[in-house]
């Protein structure tokens, strides 16, 4: 019963990751991310109930606070301030991305069959899902042009890792998790600040211009 519920939440997280791929608006993309993080928080909370570990409650609360509220809010502000085009530009069009993603998901589901995760049902069911989410996040980072969408890809990837970590090992030590949260929040803030500053000097923000800066 528990494992079914966790699997269901994991499934929703995966669906939202795929929806992330098929979204073509920045605001929508951020909203999807927020919703996805909410489901991740929920799954952490439920696993906390299941294994009755207090660390997981704190972890769930932090996820809720940082990923559902703070990061989306920052991103919204950044998008508004930067006045960049609100369409997502991709290297690979959405239909093809979805085709690639479906094969990635199949592969990750097949691969995880051959990884021994111990006897836990939850981990067996949720691990392939979180692995697919990680791959989807990586794919978003690869295929999107704008840095801000790449950031969203990174955050999606991080959600996948979070899901995998909590489901497979019932959470890492609290201090590690807080460290990760701190990393994420710093990373996100840094990224938005950097993008913001670049935006003040250049109009068109995409990865190619960033590449030019390096030269």
């Amino acid at each position: 019963m528990f494992s079914d519920f966790i699997e269901l939440i994991g499934a929703f997280v995966l669906v939202l990751a795929i929806l992330q791929i098929s979204s073509d608006r920045l605001f929508f993309s951020v909203k999807v991310y927020a919703l996805q993080s909410f489901f991740v928080a929920l799954s952490i909370f439920v696993i906390g109930l299941y294994s009755s570990s207090n660390d997981l409650y704190i972890s769930a609360f932090l996820t809720l606070l940082i990923k559902v509220i703070i990061i989306p809010f920052t991103l919204f502000e950044a998008i508004k301030e930067m006045k960049i085009k609100r369409e997502i530009e991709t290297y690979i069009n959405i239909t093809n991305s979805l085709m690639i993603i479906s094969s990635i998901i199949i592969i990750s589901f097949i691969l995880t069959r051959y990884i021994d995760l111990g006897g836990e049902i939850i981990s067996k069911k949720i691990f392939p899902i979180s692995l697919s989410i990680i791959f989807v996040g990586a794919f978003i980072m690869v295929s999107r042009k704008k840095p801000i969408t790449q950031l969203i890809g990174f955050l999606t990837l991080e959600n996948g890792i979070m899901l995998a970590a909590t489901s497979v090992t019932y959470g890492m030590p609290l201090i590690v998790e807080i460290g990760i949260f701190f990393d994420v929040i710093v990373g996100a803030t840094m990224a938005t600040i950097i993008i913001h500053h670049i935006n003040e000097t250049v109009d068109d923000i995409d990865e190619r211009t960033v590449e030019n800066f390096e030269e």
């Binding site: 499934a11 795929i18 098929s22 979805l98 998901i105 199949i106």
Partner: peptide, 12 residues
């Protein structure tokens, strides 16, 4: 895109 999304869902 929407149809492809539907297909990926059914595939999953």
């Amino acid at each position: 895109d929407a149809m492809m999304f539907g297909f990926v869902l059914s595939l999953i």
